[in-house]
Simulated scan of single mutants.
Amino acid sequence: MSPRGWAVPARWIASRIGAAIGVVWIVATVVFFALRSTGDPLEAILGGPGSQAGDEAVRAATERYALDQPLAWQYLLQLRDVATLQLGDSYSRRQPVLDLLAAHLPPTMLLAVLALALAWALTVAGALVQASARGRFGAIVGSALRAVEVVASVAPQFWFGAVLIMVFASSLGWLPATSASSDPAALVLPVVTLAVPIAGFLSQVSRDALDDADAAPFATTARARGAGEMRVLLRHTLRHASLPAISLSGWAFGSLLSGAVVVEVLFARPGLGRLLQEAALARDVPVVIGAVVIVALLYVAVVIATDALELVVDPRLRRRPRAVRAPDAAVGS
């Protein structure tokens, strides 16, 4: 590839790296000042309210964490630690923050990935059901699907999860109410709790795009050639309708990671969400900043992956815009 050919992907990569750095900086800044506004971190470092730390312990903690320095200097030191991934030790657990994140991140990632996969499966299933319906029955099915999508997209996760626990765990006894065990069945309720609201939103976006694709000339041409509705959907319109949902999958994954805080607490599931909640209550600054920065980096990485997937699905995005000649030049030629 010529140097000019490398310019476009190089700019694309540079812009994404710049966006990632900006997101991490904003997140680290907001979290640092938000936690500092809740009180003196020295209290959390020494064991919380009521600790009987002596003057020597107070002096040592103050010097170690530079709490005797101006707040602006403490902020710069925190940014340095984030940039070098030197996140230090947890105030409350007395363990390296990176070790805590490495232990709690995989369960949360598994939960988010499974929920996103289920949300996409539900979205595609709704499109298939709509395409298979005909005539008046099709209109009824479409209206019912729209109603389900709206309710699903606005249902609060804590309420929806509580309903699932009452129905499938307490009343029917089909599934466990908590997911602290290694039983795969314990993943079902948390995954469904996270996936259904995301599926409702993705389905609404995909349905609008699907309606536009159904009315496009390529779909009309395919029907004129004798293709059935299901073939038109699978071969033509579904690919076009999936583009808006693909572009929103990065946001959806970020939403799943944030929703994991609620779901992991509700289902007593170990993970990054519960670690973040406990650290925030304990004002454990290193753990909170480390967890939020990791989540921000994961979000940026998924957004970049979805951008790349869009380029694969839609070849039009890979085409360079052709130079348009000026009107005078066109006339002169």
Rank of each mutant, 00 (worst) to 15 (best):
A117Q: 08
D40W: 05
F137V: 03
A119F: 09
R134A: 09
A72G: 13
A66P: 00
S143A: 11
R136N: 01
L76I: 05
I45C: 00
W25F: 14
E43H: 08
F137G: 04
R59I: 06
A115P: 12
A115G: 10
G54N: 12
A139C: 02
P70V: 08
L116T: 07
S51E: 13
H104S: 14
R64I: 00
L85Q: 02
A121I: 04
G39E: 08
D99R: 12
A144D: 06
Q86L: 06
A44W: 02
G18K: 06
L42E: 01
F33S: 07
S143N: 11
G47Y: 10
Q74V: 02
D99V: 12
A127C: 13
A20Y: 04
L35Y: 03
Q78V: 00
R134Y: 06
I45A: 00
V23P: 04
I140L: 10
D99H: 14
Q95F: 13
W25K: 03
A72K: 03
L67C: 07
R16K: 12
A112Q: 10
T62L: 00
A34F: 09
A61P: 08
R94A: 13
P107T: 11
A60R: 15
D40G: 05
D99Q: 15
T29G: 10
A72I: 11
A103P: 08
A139M: 08
D99N: 13
S37D: 13
V31F: 03
L122Y: 11
G54F: 09
E63T: 05
A121C: 07
G47F: 06
A34Q: 11
V113Q: 15
L85S: 11
S143Q: 14
W120Q: 07
F137M: 12
V24S: 09
P96I: 11
D81W: 02
L98Q: 15
W25I: 12
I26H: 05
S37R: 07
T84W: 11
S132Q: 09
T62I: 01
A117G: 14
A61Q: 02
L128P: 01
I26W: 09
Q86D: 15
Q130G: 06
A102V: 02
E63G: 11
S132N: 07
R136V: 14
